[in-house]
């Protein structure tokens, strides 16, 4: 059985001090810088005025009545439903009573909505700019080297990821180039930032991108007509078939204790 002799590439030990270490330090420092930049740029959450609060919470109230209707007795549920439906349909909770039935304003013209979008833009910029700069820096100075060998074997598929910038066909995928080290740093520094900055830091762009995915606050986002939401909720309330959790609770209790 002829074993393929392990590839050995003589490397200058100085590679560690002049490439691996600087890239890591730069990545950590950028993360910290990004965290503080985000903290500084973050606009404080906008205060809602009384009417907006009323509009949103009244809708939320209707939703919770609908979801938890089973804790009420039939008569109290019917009373609530009638009151809420009348108020919803007449638009009593709306922020601007006059704007009923009119198409929603263009979100681009709404200064409040613009502010929210600016905030998102700022966060995006804080992520994109440093990444572009650092990647350019690494490509310009350190491309084309093999800087380290991973201590575990890997399959051939990893070659394109780990040896980016080193176009050698037969090299073992365990050898890593500097640009792959950079990617590893992007994905793997989260625990370091957690340790340095606390767990709710803004240093890691991966976490930020995760947050981006679900459109939070879409319920009251710009461009949604609250009147339509109220009407839809009134309809939802109207079709509930009421049952109460109190129906037959004694029997359940007696049986449950005996069993």
């Amino acid at each position: 059985m002829a074993q393929v002799p392990a590839q050995t590439i003589p490397r200058d030990p100085q590679l560690f001090y002049w490439i691996l270490f600087p890239i890591t330090v730069v990545m950590v420092l950028t993360g910290i810088l990004r965290h503080y930049a985000t903290v500084l740029m973050a606009s404080s959450p906008k205060k809602l005025d009384k009417k907006t609060t009323r509009e949103q919470r009244s809708l939320a109230h209707g939703v919770s009545v609908r979801a938890n209707h089973y804790v009420l007795s039939r008569s109290s549920f019917t009373a609530r439903r009638d009151a809420l439906m009348t108020a919803y349909e007449s638009g009593a909770f709306l922020k601007d009573q006059d704007g009923r039935g009119q198409p929603p304003p263009n979100p681009m013209n709404d200064p409040a909505a613009m502010e929210g979008m600016m905030g998102m833009m700022k966060n995006q910029m804080a992520m994109i700019i440093p990444n572009t700069l650092i990647m350019g820096w690494i490509n310009a100075f350190f491309s084309g080297y093999v800087i380290m060998k991973l201590p575990f074997p890997l399959t051939i598929k990893f070659k394109s990821m780990l040896q980016a910038g080193v176009a050698t066909k037969d090299m073992d995928p365990r050898w890593m180039s500097s640009i792959s080290w950079y990617f590893l740093c992007i994905f793997g520094l989260q625990p370091v930032f957690n340790f340095l900055l606390g767990s709710d830091n803004a240093a890691n762009q991966m976490a930020a991108q995760m947050q981006m995915a679900p459109p939070a606050g879409q319920m009251f986002g710009p461009g949604v007509d609250p009147n339509k939401q109220f009407l839809a909720e009134a309809e939802n309330l109207a079709v509930i078939e009421h049952h109460s959790v109190l129906d037959g609770v004694e029997q359940r209790l007696l049986e449950g204790i005996k069993a």
């Binding site: 007795s73 008569s75 019917t78 109190l246 004694e250 029997q251 209790l253 007696l254 204790i257």
Partner: peptide, 19 residues
């Protein structure tokens, strides 16, 4: 009949009381 709950019968009440 107007949507209120009916009282449980006497034996149920006795059992509940015992419990």
């Amino acid at each position: 009949d107007e949507g209120g709950f009916a009282l449980p019968d006497r034996s149920t009440l006795e059992k509940l009381h015992e419990l």
